[in-house]
Design a protein around this nucleic acid. Sequence first.
DNA 1: CTGTTAGCGCTTTCAA
DNA 2: TTGAAAGCGCTAACAG
Lengths: 343, 343
Amino acid sequence: MSGRRWTSRDVAALAGVSVATVSYVMNGRMSDRIPAATREKVLSAARQLDYSPNRSAQSLRRQKTEQICLVVDSIGVPTVDQLARDLYAKAEKVGYGLITMVAGSAERAAKTAALLHQRVADAAVIAPATVPRFREETLVELARGGLPMVAMSNTVRPIGFDVVRAPERDACVDAMSHLLASGRSRVAFLGHHEEVTDAEARAGSERLGAYTAALDQHGVAVDDELIVDGADDRVAGYQAVARLLQRPDRPDAIFAASGRSAISAIWAVRDAGLTVPDDVAVVGCGNLPEAEITSPTLSTVGPPTTEDFTDVAELLFQRVLADERPPEREITNPWVFVPRGSA
Amino acid sequence: MSGRRWTSRDVAALAGVSVATVSYVMNGRMSDRIPAATREKVLSAARQLDYSPNRSAQSLRRQKTEQICLVVDSIGVPTVDQLARDLYAKAEKVGYGLITMVAGSAERAAKTAALLHQRVADAAVIAPATVPRFREETLVELARGGLPMVAMSNTVRPIGFDVVRAPERDACVDAMSHLLASGRSRVAFLGHHEEVTDAEARAGSERLGAYTAALDQHGVAVDDELIVDGADDRVAGYQAVARLLQRPDRPDAIFAASGRSAISAIWAVRDAGLTVPDDVAVVGCGNLPEAEITSPTLSTVGPPTTEDFTDVAELLFQRVLADERPPEREITNPWVFVPRGSA
DNA sequence: CTGTTAGCGCTTTCAA
DNA sequence: TTGAAAGCGCTAACAG
């Protein structure tokens, strides 16, 4: 009753039936054709041996793993957690598991792609901000190999997979216009590390793009000193803003590329003896539930209500469970500027 | 070049070698015995077909999945995120993947155990607060079935698996004593939902136990009205504290069973027009990095420095990679009361 | 109703 | 240096 794992053959022997029968009853197939007595014998033998069918063998035979894979950029991003929860809920409903892989760099993305290619899961969703880690060709190849996939991105083209978009840009411009129209002239940008640090990422950043575009539109010059990183992390965000506020020409507003760092910005502003929004206005991205409990409440760019990704889960599982490959779909979720107390 | 997936047989055919040779070169075995020319032929054929070996087949044949499983109670707990990061880092180093399963209820724990039993992963770590979801027997059985496992719990006995403990109780009592000794008399307990709601969980809660014990020790009566839930979630925590503060006999201190909810408590206290710690002291659990950037900084019960679980990862992989099963080990990480600004 | 059997795709002796 | 062949544990078509 220990050590080696029992197989269906062992159960069959103990129950005095064939392995086929064991398989049938373990899977509840032919349930009307197998007499209760046989069923019981098998079940009791299985119980006795503490048997359960080997997943790898099942997957090999059935040609599916019944796992879906969520590919993320990093661990601990609230938006992605919500995505994970929504995927998890849907997956569980249809008997699938969820596995998460972290693709925080091009190398890791390549590894992730290789794993996906090996069919470690039956389908994948690539979380927002993670898509750029992959070469477009890699994604296309994966899809062509028959992997149901949905990518959350505003730029990638849907070639064999679905794409979910969030038109951030206009909403960000709205927020910036609001800031500038209400008299702010030194608006800082608090971005993700790569977003402000890496030339390519910088060029591709919608949020940063919106920031500079809005500045231009309002005729205010971009001051590179006001573009800093720290959006990835609450502590980093705090420190970045604290540093900014020590400057003699401190900003009078902060446009943060994440919700978490915007909240850190509020802390930092207050610790500097200043007030939000009078001395420094703050706007975040993402519309976390948490935005409603800060003081002042956090003005945010994001989905109009709290984040919800059940549509993504729906899209993916339609693909997974479909008999034949559906056409590529593209859905666009709304993003807006939600003014609250902080700006 | 699309549709069906190519197998080693296809590659072998295209390269004009046998499947054995394909396997050899794909795995880099016999690398000195296979002539470069053959190797090249195989590699080029593989590239041409975009071939990569099927994971399920490999797992079946090799009798291992090279995945480890992290079992958690819910998604989005900072402590668990750190655990995931540390496990992930170690796993990646030795070529393993990480999959996460959510076992937030007894039913889900049972499902999780079943999956583990099916060998969907080669090993598992059960995150703090998740262990009570399982019947002890289930854990023991899993271990007996040969699954390397480490459970993070203060109560479970290490029978076939390792256990990592965090002696929360004394540290919590210290924090409570600090509160009471400094003149607080109405200390509220902000616990996790089940911890205060479910009789059994309530009885098993170390934090709640320490809370009442400390109260007793100091001769102050337990007021059930001051024991509320809300620790699971930032918003819930805020609301719970807001409600508490509206009472005519409002608390003068809050002992929160999580770090996140303690921070929400700070927001709530301030929104009620009160100050921390003068009007209301706040203590949290867990020692998040974030505790240093709030204002006032958050006094916390937890590990003396920021959380780190590389030892857990180490323990697990020793077991995974060991030739024979090591004896059960038990490690105890320190917990202390870290007074900062909020209490 | 149940058993026999042929694989799923891969690895790994053993032989050549 | 490479190939043939025997499975890993399971499922499902087909027989009986």
